[in-house]
Simulated scan of single mutants.
Amino acid sequence: MDTSTRYLRPGKGDLLLARVVAALTRRGMSLWGSRILSVRGRNTGEWRSTPVNLLDFDGEQYLVSARGHTQWVRNLRVAGTGRLQVGRRIEAFGATEVADDEKVAILRAYLKRWQFEVGRFFDGVGPKSGDDELRRIAPGHPVFRVS
């Protein structure tokens, strides 16, 4: 599979879980760092929302797309800004995409924290995998630094 265009569609079970996580997060119950990400659609300009995991790593915050080049990734690339919500707290942010060669440590930290939830999307690569393996999958998992 071409990792530069990798996208794994969610199944029915994934969509149900996302709805539950989103509902809890909107009520102020962040599950392991969950947030509601809202980004303006690149074609419509309308707000689009989805639950994400916000990674705190090395003094910075990151959004990692476990499923690849998703709609929220494509929208964030165009918009460059978005909102993150937990309960009533909504924070606007700017986003900078991280280059593939800078992703290894970020992906390792992400997998260390959420492998139980997203590990199946990383083709057998986990937090204990070598740098070469993480570097190999990096193009298929967009990462954004949140500021």
Rank of each mutant, 00 (worst) to 15 (best):
I36T: 06
S38Q: 08
S38C: 05
S38M: 02
V39Y: 00
V39N: 02
R40M: 03
R40S: 12
G41H: 11
G41C: 08
R42C: 04
R42M: 04
N43Q: 14
N43C: 02
E46W: 14
P51I: 09
P51E: 05
V52N: 09
N53K: 11
N53A: 07
N53C: 06
L55F: 15
F57P: 04
D58I: 03
G59H: 12
G59N: 04
G59P: 10
E60D: 15
L63K: 08
V64K: 11
S65P: 06
S65Y: 13
A66W: 15
R67A: 15
R67I: 14
R67F: 13
G68P: 14
G68Y: 11
G68H: 15
G68F: 12
G68N: 15
H69E: 08
T70I: 07
T70Y: 05
Q71I: 12
Q71L: 07
Q71Y: 10
W72A: 04
W72S: 08
W72P: 06
V73G: 00
V73T: 15
R74M: 08
L76C: 02
R77D: 11
V78I: 10
A79R: 13
A79P: 02
G80R: 03
G80T: 01
G82H: 00
G82F: 00
R83P: 06
L84P: 02
Q85C: 09
Q85F: 01
V86W: 00
R88Y: 12
R89P: 03
R89I: 13
R89W: 13
E91F: 00
E91A: 08
F93G: 01
F93Q: 08
G94Q: 11
G94T: 12
A95F: 05
A95Q: 01
E97S: 04
V98C: 05
V98R: 04
D101A: 06
D101H: 15
E102F: 07
E102W: 05
K103P: 03
V104M: 12
V104E: 15
V104G: 09
A105V: 08
A105W: 00
I106K: 06
L107V: 14
R108L: 02
A109G: 12
Y110R: 01
Y110W: 08
Y110A: 02
Y110K: 01
